[in-house]
C-alpha cells in the first residue's frame, strides 16, 4: 500500500502537544495546527475560536498537494515551506518528515516572519523525531498483529451508525 496507516497514541499526542504549545508561545503565534497530508487534523493549539479547523485541515492538505504537483512539474521534489501574507493574519506552512504539515497563524502586529521561521526550525526537527517514533510504533503494532480497536466490530455495529 502507498503509505502506512497513521496511528496517533496518547503518549505521542502528549509529546506533540508540548512542542506545539511551546512553539505557539515562542513564535507569538495566534494558533498552530498539525495536519496529516491526507487532510486530517492531528493536533492544534492557540486561539481557535472562529476557526473551522476541519476545513482548515482539508484545504491545507489540498494546497500542499497542489503545490507539490507544481513542484514536480518544474523538477522540484516538493516546496517544503509556504507563506501566505494577509492584511492582518498570515499563514506559515511547513512540511515535516514529508508527511505532516505544520501550519502557523500569526498576526502582523504580534509576530514576524523572521521570528516564526526561527522557531519553526527547531520545532520541526523535534516534531520530525516524534513522527518517526510514531511511525515505528504503528508499524510494529501492525506487524505484530496487535489488536486493532476495530478487529471485533460486527455488521450490526456498522448498521447502527446509520440507524437515525
Amino acid at each position: 500500500m502507498a503509505e502506512p496507516q497513521l496511528v496517533l497514541y496518547e503518549e505521542e499526542h502528549g509529546h506533540i502537544q508540548v512542542v506545539i504549545d511551546k512553539l505557539a508561545l515562542e513564535a507569538s503565534a495566534k494558533a498552530v495546527f498539525l495536519v496529516d497530508k491526507n487532510g486530517q487534523l492531528v493536533a492544534e493549539t492557540g486561539e481557535l475560536r472562529g476557526i473551522d479547523t476541519t476545513s482548515l485541515a482539508s484545504l491545507t492538505a489540498g494546497n500542499i498537494a497542489a503545490t507539490g504537483g507544481l513542484a514536480k512539474i518544474i523538477g522540484e521534489e516538493e516546496f517544503p515551506t509556504h507563506f501566505h501574507q494577509g492584511d492582518r493574519d498570515n499563514l506559515h506552512i511547513t512540511l515535516i518528515a514529508r508527511r505532516i504539515i505544520l501550519v502557523i497563524v500569526f498576526e502582523n502586529d504580534k509576530s514576524s516572519l523572521g521570528l516564526v521561521r526561527l522557531r519553526v526550525k527547531k520545532a520541526s526537527s523535534e516534531l520530525a523525531h516524534i513522527f518517526e517514533e510514531m511511525q515505528k510504533k504503528a508499524e510494529a503494532a501492525a506487524a505484530s498483529g496487535a489488536d486493532s480497536p476495530f478487529a471485533e466490530i460486527t455488521d450490526d455495529d456498522i448498521d447502527n451508525l446509520f440507524s437515525d
Binding site: 500500500m1 496517533l8 497514541y9 496518547e10
Partner: peptide
C-alpha cells in the same frame, strides 16, 4: 489512509 487517533478516540476515513 484512515487515521486512528487514540488521544481523541476518533477514527477518520476518506471516501
Amino acid at each position: 489512509m484512515s487515521f486512528i487517533n487514540y488521544s481523541s478516540r476518533e477514527i477518520n476515513c476518506k471516501i
